[in-house]
Design a protein around this nucleic acid. Structure first.
Lengths: 233, 233
DNA sequence: ACTCGAAAGTCATCTGATGACTTTCACTGT
DNA sequence: ACAGTGAAAGTCATCAGATGACTTTCGAGT
């Protein structure tokens, strides 16, 4: 086993066995180097790996701390890499997103409060009122994030936020067809918000699913022509 | 921006813009250090971060290569960290797993072939025949993996495999109640496989969902008594 | 009791040197 | 001409030492 791997697994083991708990500060570099039997350079590389994965968090001048180890912490690390995926792979992600958006919509319908309804329709009105595609995209994000929040599962809400962030990079609303797409999108939002307000989980799930499916079709339409070069390695 | 961040974002940008494509070898450390304006140590830390995230892959003596950038590549990185989550956070993950297992079961029911049916029932028979909890757990994994594979979305199959790997760490089948749990689990499997064989997506989804929910209840029952200390930061 | 500054502790970075592994290619023997 | 062998170049892996930057702590002074 290489030195970096030794340090990486050693640290992971300390956290996994509870020797280092969430939020706790880990020993300084010098001590860990001695205990793990690696140089500072190798240890630092292992620390960076765990930091990239959302497990620990170095603070310059203070020390290195274990994260809270909530699912959101480690899922957030996906946001750094998901945007590197080619569009072809992204469509598989969309199938997952479609299923999960439908689920949170149904959950939100079952749990929604009058205040939630007010918030959702307020966001819709702002969305319909603005002409700035960037602002519209931002409001769209907040609309879906609110539904996910009401759904009651922070981990799932984070996961969907990561998926959406990737989609937003495409900025479909800035295309020549943008206004048409936005009109259709706004309609979808009203149907979805109404289903939630009616506390109708089945209708909400259906509306959310077809909304995501619509976005998926747009991306398909605007993605570069399919390359039939089998992606064999 | 720190030196490591500079290198990290620089590399990520090269990959994101296509200057470095999937499978391609990236320039040697020396060149990248000069181009990015950081020392070798800082560059190596950035490389390790991207490697931990499944984006690049260093090969000793040969060079460092961009991964294929399939969704599975980056999702696989979660398997290193998901097992560090405390059980409380894991239950949120279970809700996601439940929804997605139901979806792949329905998909599998819609797409299944006679060969799939044979494979599934063969696995079930092996599962019922063995008395070794570890082997049973392994067969259970293969059973669900086969369904996910037939579901047709490799990304989703990988994601579910990661979730299951975390659950298997608990080894519920080795508990005193293990035999009872296994009997119930085996029944669930037969119901699920039958629904798939009948090409009945609705029944398959329901069976998968209740199977996961059952596992979830077992974990809840065996998890340490709930700590009511509100987890506010 | 409060403010300020020095000192200690810790992470961040750079430089240089050496080792290990892979790949390439010229050389040698058949 | 061909195959096998071994040396050499290229590349990543690791270590060691020194310096800088930032945070926290604590004591002196007001």
């Amino acid at each position: 086993m290489s030195a970096v791997e030794k340090a990486f697994h050693g640290l992971r083991h300390m956290i996994g066995t509870g020797r280092l708990g969430p939020g706790e500060r880990i020993p300084p570099e010098g001590e860990l180097c001695e205990e793990l039997g690696v140089s500072r350079g190798s240890l630092r590389e292992a620390v960076r790996m765990l930091a990239a994965l959302g497990v620990i968090e170095p603070r310059h001048g203070s020390g290195t701390y274990v994260s809270q180890l909530r699912p959101e912490d480690v899922i957030g690390s996906l946001s750094l890499t998901l945007e590197l995926l080619p569009l072809s792979g992204l469509l598989e992600v969309y199938e997952i997103r479609r299923v999960l958006e439908a689920h949170v919509a149904a959950q939100a319908a079952a749990r929604c409060t009058p205040e939630t309804v007010r918030t959702l329709f307020s966001l819709i009105e702002d969305m319909e009122a603005t002409s700035d595609p960037t602002e519209a995209s931002e409001l769209d994000h907040r609309f879906h994030a609110e539904i996910a929040r009401v759904g009651g599962n922070p981990t799932l809400a984070t996961l969907l936020a990561v998926f959406r962030a990737r989609s937003r990079k495409y900025q479909v609303f800035t295309l020549p067809e943008g206004p048409d797409l936005r009109r259709k999108s706004d309609d979808d939002h009203r149907v979805l918000a109404t289903a939630i307000a009616d506390r109708d989980p089945v209708a909400a799930a259906g509306a959310a699913q077809s909304h995501v499916a619509q976005t998926e079709r747009w991306l398909r339409a605007f993605m570069p022509p399919v390359e039939e070069t089998g992606d064999g390695d």
